[in-house]
Simulated scan of single mutants.
Amino acid sequence: MRLKDELILLLRKGFYVLLMVFILMFVAISILLFNFEKNNLVNFASFVKSAVEEKSFESSESVINYINKLIANKEEFMFFSPAKENRLFYVSVPIKVLGYNFVICKDLRSSFLKLVIILD
C-alpha cells in the first residue's frame, strides 16, 4: 500500500511540473507571436505609407479608400481606424500619411486559436 501512495504522489508532482512547463511554453510562444506580428505590421505600415505618398489624392476619403484596397489585398484580419483599438488579441501600429493619422490593426484571435489547437 505504501508504494502505491508514493507512486500516486510522484505522478501528481509530474503532472504539476508538466502543467507548469506547458503554461510557460504557451506564454513564451504567445509573446513571440505578438512580437513577430508587430514587426510584420510595422513593415506593412511603412509599405502603406510609401505607397500612399507616391500617389496624389484629392481628399481624405480617397486616401482611406486606397488604404482599404491595400489592406484588403494583404490579409483578411487586418483593418485600419482613426483611433487605436485597445483589445486583448490586437496588434496595432500608428502611421501618419499625408497629414492624416491612422492606426493599422491586426486581429490575432485566429492565430491564438491555431496556437491552442497545435499545443493541445
Rank of each mutant, 00 (worst) to 15 (best):
R2P: 00
R2A: 11
L3Q: 06
L7N: 08
L7F: 04
I8V: 10
L9N: 11
L10I: 05
L11F: 13
L11V: 08
G14T: 04
V17Q: 08
V17W: 02
V17I: 12
V17G: 03
L18F: 15
L18W: 10
L19G: 11
L19P: 05
V21T: 11
F22H: 06
L24H: 12
M25G: 08
M25Y: 12
F26Q: 10
F26C: 14
F26W: 02
V27D: 13
A28P: 05
A28L: 15
I29Y: 07
I29W: 08
S30G: 10
S30W: 09
I31G: 04
I31H: 04
I31P: 01
I31M: 12
L33W: 05
L33G: 03
F34Q: 13
K38H: 13
K38G: 06
N39R: 14
V42N: 06
N43H: 12
N43A: 09
F44Q: 05
A45K: 11
A45D: 03
S46T: 04
S46V: 03
S46R: 09
K49N: 12
A51H: 05
V52H: 01
V52S: 07
E53V: 08
E54I: 11
E54P: 00
K55V: 01
F57R: 02
F57A: 05
S59K: 15
S59Y: 04
S59G: 10
S59H: 09
S60A: 14
S62Y: 02
V63G: 01
I64Y: 06
I64N: 02
I64L: 00
N65H: 11
Y66S: 04
Y66I: 06
N68F: 09
N68T: 14
K69M: 06
K69W: 07
L70G: 01
K74F: 09
K74R: 12
E75K: 15
F77C: 04
F79V: 13
F80E: 04
S81C: 09
P82K: 10
A83G: 11
A83K: 15
K84D: 10
K84Q: 15
K84M: 09
K84G: 03
E85H: 10
N86I: 10
N86F: 08
L88F: 12
F89Q: 07
V91I: 03
V91Q: 02
P94Q: 10
K96N: 13
V97F: 02
L98R: 07
G99M: 03
G99C: 07
Y100T: 02
V103F: 06
V103R: 04
C105H: 11
K106F: 04
D107F: 00
L108I: 05
R109Y: 01
R109A: 00
S111H: 11
K114Y: 06
L115W: 00
V116M: 09
V116D: 03
I118G: 07
